[in-house]
Simulated assay, not measured.
Amino acid sequence: MDHLTGLGVAIALFASTNIDDIVVLIGFFSDPRYRPRQIVIGQFLGIAVLVLASLAGALLSLVAAPALLGLLGLVPIGLGLRHLLSRRDDDGDEAAAGTASAGKALAVAGVTVANGGDNIGIYTPVFATSPAPRLVLFVAVFAVMVALWLGLAHWLVHHPALGAPIRRIGRVATPFVLIGIGVMVLVEAGTVAWVAEWAVRG
Protein backbone atom coordinates (compact mmCIF):
# COMPACT_ATOMS: atom_id res chain seq x y z
CA MET A 1 0.00 0.00 0.00
CA ASP A 2 1.60 3.30 -1.08
CA HIS A 3 1.32 6.55 0.83
CA LEU A 4 -1.53 7.88 -1.33
CA THR A 5 -3.59 4.73 -0.80
CA GLY A 6 -2.76 4.77 2.90
CA LEU A 7 -3.94 8.39 3.08
CA GLY A 8 -7.24 7.46 1.45
CA VAL A 9 -7.72 4.52 3.80
CA ALA A 10 -7.00 6.70 6.84
CA ILE A 11 -9.50 9.38 5.74
CA ALA A 12 -12.20 6.82 4.94
CA LEU A 13 -11.54 4.97 8.19
CA PHE A 14 -11.92 8.08 10.33
CA ALA A 15 -14.88 9.57 8.46
CA SER A 16 -16.89 6.35 8.40
CA THR A 17 -16.47 5.75 12.13
CA ASN A 18 -16.98 9.32 13.36
CA ILE A 19 -19.93 10.69 11.39
CA ASP A 20 -22.09 10.74 14.52
CA ASP A 21 -19.43 12.74 16.36
CA ILE A 22 -20.46 15.80 14.32
CA VAL A 23 -23.89 15.74 15.99
CA VAL A 24 -22.33 15.36 19.45
CA LEU A 25 -19.85 18.20 18.83
CA ILE A 26 -22.62 20.49 17.60
CA GLY A 27 -24.43 19.76 20.84
CA PHE A 28 -21.39 20.64 22.95
CA PHE A 29 -20.64 23.83 20.97
CA SER A 30 -24.30 24.82 21.39
CA ASP A 31 -24.08 24.49 25.17
CA PRO A 32 -22.88 27.79 26.74
CA ARG A 33 -21.52 25.86 29.71
CA TYR A 34 -18.80 24.37 27.51
CA ARG A 35 -16.03 26.57 26.19
CA PRO A 36 -14.47 25.78 22.79
CA ARG A 37 -11.12 25.04 24.43
CA GLN A 38 -12.70 22.39 26.68
CA ILE A 39 -14.39 20.75 23.70
CA VAL A 40 -11.22 20.75 21.59
CA ILE A 41 -9.09 19.27 24.38
CA GLY A 42 -11.74 16.69 25.25
CA GLN A 43 -12.25 15.58 21.65
CA PHE A 44 -8.53 15.19 20.95
CA LEU A 45 -8.08 13.35 24.25
CA GLY A 46 -10.99 11.00 23.52
CA ILE A 47 -9.76 10.15 20.01
CA ALA A 48 -6.24 9.62 21.41
CA VAL A 49 -7.62 7.13 23.92
CA LEU A 50 -9.46 5.26 21.14
CA VAL A 51 -6.34 5.11 18.98
CA LEU A 52 -4.16 3.92 21.86
CA ALA A 53 -6.77 1.33 22.85
CA SER A 54 -6.89 0.12 19.25
CA LEU A 55 -3.10 -0.15 19.07
CA ALA A 56 -3.28 -2.26 22.21
CA GLY A 57 -6.42 -4.02 20.99
CA ALA A 58 -5.14 -7.56 21.27
CA LEU A 59 -4.05 -7.04 24.87
CA LEU A 60 -7.22 -5.14 25.73
CA SER A 61 -9.42 -7.96 24.47
CA LEU A 62 -7.65 -10.33 26.83
CA VAL A 63 -8.00 -8.03 29.80
CA ALA A 64 -11.61 -6.89 29.47
CA ALA A 65 -14.70 -8.44 27.93
CA PRO A 66 -16.71 -6.26 25.51
CA ALA A 67 -19.65 -6.29 27.93
CA LEU A 68 -17.46 -4.68 30.59
CA LEU A 69 -16.18 -2.06 28.16
CA GLY A 70 -19.81 -1.33 27.31
CA LEU A 71 -20.22 0.13 30.81
CA LEU A 72 -18.61 3.26 29.31
CA GLY A 73 -22.09 3.90 27.93
CA LEU A 74 -23.04 5.09 31.41
CA VAL A 75 -20.87 8.19 30.83
CA PRO A 76 -23.03 9.81 28.11
CA ILE A 77 -26.21 8.65 29.86
CA GLY A 78 -25.09 10.39 33.06
CA LEU A 79 -24.14 13.56 31.16
CA GLY A 80 -27.45 13.57 29.31
CA LEU A 81 -29.43 13.22 32.52
CA ARG A 82 -27.36 15.96 34.15
CA HIS A 83 -28.06 18.28 31.21
CA LEU A 84 -31.79 17.63 31.55
CA LEU A 85 -31.76 18.26 35.30
CA SER A 86 -29.58 21.38 35.20
CA ARG A 87 -31.21 23.35 32.37
CA ARG A 88 -32.56 25.86 34.87
CA ASP A 89 -28.95 26.65 35.84
CA ASP A 90 -27.74 27.38 32.28
CA ASP A 91 -27.08 31.00 33.19
CA GLY A 92 -25.23 30.10 36.38
CA ASP A 93 -21.97 31.37 37.78
CA GLU A 94 -19.33 31.68 35.05
CA ALA A 95 -16.53 31.40 37.59
CA ALA A 96 -17.80 28.01 38.66
CA ALA A 97 -17.80 26.93 35.02
CA GLY A 98 -14.18 27.99 34.72
CA THR A 99 -13.26 26.01 37.81
CA ALA A 100 -14.76 22.89 36.25
CA SER A 101 -12.83 23.36 33.00
CA ALA A 102 -10.79 20.17 33.33
CA GLY A 103 -13.86 18.20 34.33
CA LYS A 104 -15.78 19.37 31.28
CA ALA A 105 -12.90 18.51 28.96
CA LEU A 106 -12.85 15.03 30.52
CA ALA A 107 -16.62 14.81 30.07
CA VAL A 108 -16.25 15.49 26.34
CA ALA A 109 -13.46 12.91 26.19
CA GLY A 110 -15.63 10.39 28.03
CA VAL A 111 -18.49 10.81 25.56
CA THR A 112 -16.06 10.48 22.63
CA VAL A 113 -14.63 7.26 24.04
CA ALA A 114 -18.04 5.80 24.86
CA ASN A 115 -19.39 6.73 21.43
CA GLY A 116 -16.30 5.26 19.79
CA GLY A 117 -16.43 1.79 21.30
CA ASP A 118 -17.08 0.30 17.87
CA ASN A 119 -14.11 2.26 16.51
CA ILE A 120 -11.76 0.06 18.51
CA GLY A 121 -13.12 -3.06 16.85
CA ILE A 122 -12.64 -1.50 13.41
CA TYR A 123 -9.28 0.16 13.98
CA THR A 124 -7.62 -2.77 15.72
CA PRO A 125 -7.38 -5.19 12.75
CA VAL A 126 -6.31 -2.37 10.41
CA PHE A 127 -3.60 -1.22 12.82
CA ALA A 128 -2.51 -4.81 13.46
CA THR A 129 -1.75 -5.36 9.77
CA SER A 130 -0.07 -2.01 9.20
CA PRO A 131 3.69 -1.36 9.36
CA ALA A 132 5.02 1.42 11.58
CA PRO A 133 5.25 4.12 8.85
CA ARG A 134 1.62 3.54 7.91
CA LEU A 135 0.57 3.74 11.57
CA VAL A 136 2.32 7.11 11.85
CA LEU A 137 0.41 8.25 8.75
CA PHE A 138 -2.89 7.06 10.25
CA VAL A 139 -2.28 8.92 13.51
CA ALA A 140 -1.33 12.13 11.66
CA VAL A 141 -4.41 11.94 9.42
CA PHE A 142 -6.66 11.25 12.40
CA ALA A 143 -5.30 14.36 14.16
CA VAL A 144 -6.03 16.50 11.10
CA MET A 145 -9.51 14.97 10.73
CA VAL A 146 -10.33 15.68 14.39
CA ALA A 147 -9.42 19.34 13.79
CA LEU A 148 -11.63 19.39 10.67
CA TRP A 149 -14.53 17.80 12.57
CA LEU A 150 -14.20 20.40 15.34
CA GLY A 151 -13.94 23.22 12.82
CA LEU A 152 -17.01 22.04 10.92
CA ALA A 153 -19.14 21.69 14.06
CA HIS A 154 -18.01 25.11 15.36
CA TRP A 155 -18.68 26.72 11.96
CA LEU A 156 -22.20 25.26 11.76
CA VAL A 157 -23.07 26.44 15.28
CA HIS A 158 -21.80 30.00 14.57
CA HIS A 159 -22.99 30.31 10.96
CA PRO A 160 -24.86 33.65 10.46
CA ALA A 161 -27.94 31.95 9.06
CA LEU A 162 -27.71 28.41 10.43
CA GLY A 163 -26.12 29.11 13.80
CA ALA A 164 -29.15 30.30 15.79
CA PRO A 165 -31.50 27.42 14.84
CA ILE A 166 -28.68 24.87 15.20
CA ARG A 167 -27.88 26.17 18.69
CA ARG A 168 -31.54 26.02 19.69
CA ILE A 169 -31.95 22.50 18.34
CA GLY A 170 -28.60 21.45 19.80
CA ARG A 171 -29.48 22.60 23.30
CA VAL A 172 -32.77 20.74 23.24
CA ALA A 173 -31.54 17.60 21.50
CA THR A 174 -28.11 17.12 23.12
CA PRO A 175 -29.30 15.43 26.37
CA PHE A 176 -31.43 12.97 24.40
CA VAL A 177 -28.63 12.31 21.87
CA LEU A 178 -26.20 11.59 24.72
CA ILE A 179 -28.66 9.27 26.48
CA GLY A 180 -29.39 7.52 23.18
CA ILE A 181 -25.69 7.02 22.50
CA GLY A 182 -25.19 5.58 25.98
CA VAL A 183 -28.08 3.16 25.61
CA MET A 184 -26.81 2.11 22.16
CA VAL A 185 -23.33 1.43 23.58
CA LEU A 186 -24.76 -0.66 26.44
CA VAL A 187 -26.94 -2.71 24.08
CA GLU A 188 -24.45 -3.20 21.25
CA ALA A 189 -21.64 -4.19 23.63
CA GLY A 190 -23.90 -6.84 25.15
CA THR A 191 -23.76 -5.14 28.55
CA VAL A 192 -27.54 -5.12 29.01
CA ALA A 193 -27.79 -8.84 28.20
CA TRP A 194 -24.78 -9.57 30.43
CA VAL A 195 -26.31 -7.69 33.39
CA ALA A 196 -29.68 -9.37 32.84
CA GLU A 197 -28.03 -12.81 32.78
CA TRP A 198 -26.02 -12.00 35.88
CA ALA A 199 -29.18 -10.79 37.68
CA VAL A 200 -31.03 -13.99 36.78
CA ARG A 201 -28.15 -16.16 38.02
CA GLY A 202 -27.86 -14.07 41.17
Rank of each mutant, 00 (worst) to 15 (best):
L55Q: 14
V49H: 12
A189P: 05
I19M: 15
A48Y: 05
L74K: 14
G42V: 10
G121M: 04
G117R: 07
A140E: 07
Q43S: 11
V40S: 09
V63N: 03
A105L: 03
D89R: 15
R82G: 02
V51H: 04
G103F: 04
L84Q: 08
V187R: 14
I166M: 08
L162W: 10
L106G: 13
I166N: 06
G92F: 02
N115Q: 15
S61R: 15
V187S: 05
S130L: 12
A102E: 01
G116F: 08
V126D: 05
Q43D: 01
L81Q: 03
N18L: 12
R35Y: 04
A15M: 13
V187A: 13
G202P: 02
I26R: 03
V136H: 05
R87C: 01
L52C: 02
A161M: 12
A147R: 15
R201Q: 11
A56G: 15
A140T: 13
V75E: 00
F44S: 03
L4T: 11
S86F: 07
M184S: 14
A95E: 11
G116V: 10
L137T: 05
H159G: 06
G116I: 13
F142A: 11
V144M: 14
A107S: 06
L84N: 01
D91E: 11
R168V: 02
R33S: 02
W198T: 14
D20A: 10
L55M: 15
G92Q: 06
D2V: 00
A189K: 13
V9D: 02
L60A: 14
V177T: 07
H158L: 05
M145E: 09
G116S: 13
A97T: 05
A196E: 11
F44D: 00
T191L: 11
R134Q: 14
D31Y: 00
